[in-house]
Design a protein around this nucleic acid. Sequence first.
DNA 1: CTAAGTGCAAATCTTTTGCAACTTA
DNA 2: TAAGTTGCAAAAGATTTGCACTTAG
Lengths: 144, 144
Amino acid sequence: MQDSIEQKLKDQGYKITPQRKIIIKAFTKAKNHLLSAEKVFEWSKKHEKSINLSTIYRNIEVMMRIGVLKKISLDNHVDQYKLSVTNEHHHHIVCISCGKSEIFKDCPVSHIENTLIEKLGFTPIEHKLEILGLCQECTQKSRE
Amino acid sequence: MQDSIEQKLKDQGYKITPQRKIIIKAFTKAKNHLLSAEKVFEWSKKHEKSINLSTIYRNIEVMMRIGVLKKISLDNHVDQYKLSVTNEHHHHIVCISCGKSEIFKDCPVSHIENTLIEKLGFTPIEHKLEILGLCQECTQKSRE
DNA sequence: CTAAGTGCAAATCTTTTGCAACTTA
DNA sequence: TAAGTTGCAAAAGATTTGCACTTAG
């Protein structure tokens, strides 16, 4: 994972710097959890070596450009990101309690796009869908 | 429309100020188009009387609180809003060219929520879905 | 009359940018 | 060694807040 991302960076002519390694590591370790730039910053400070926030923002942009990172903006003015290795169309369900997110691939939107075209003459280009709720563990906890 | 919103404000103990009237008017005139706080500001300056941006932000908050305004955050760090009179669950399709938006009510997400519960143990609470594309007119224009 | 609302200026918060110094390949 | 990258400080852009003044009811 870590390696395959580094490889993609190299392939696109980007250099592998210690900062990039750390940022990739942060996202890899975070697994399914969404991270903001600030969170990556905190993580780097705590576990490796403090990376400048600008550097983090710049690298997040690079990683989005080469398609290994996906942005998820909820309503709170803080962009969050997670690794997205697959090219397959998918969406996220995000736990509002612990921040964990999971992928689901059977996108329900594709089914209705034809209807939009026919009924409204609207040409769909892309869509954003995020489902918020409680993950299995947090559902449990909330019951206790 | 204008009136029914004013009524709701009154019902909740809010006062009807000239500024509020103008803000409501801006959203009413905008019809399906999304407006940012800044856009409301520009509109007020041009068509009625300049309202302070803070006042606009504060009133947007009030209007969201009483449920007549809905926020739609796309990825660009600018919150946009539109009137939402209905309590019915619905989503928006937004034209990326002209900003027009339309409502669609047959939400495809509800159909899959049971699957989420069963397959992942995830308890869905809410979801955000925005479809972006070209409206009928802009689709036309793009063909010419 | 008074609680609520407004304008203004300043603060906050996230993200972006310019630039000189430094590193990777 | 050259192109790419980083850190720092400053800027930018959206939104929020404190406070004295004003106004709707």
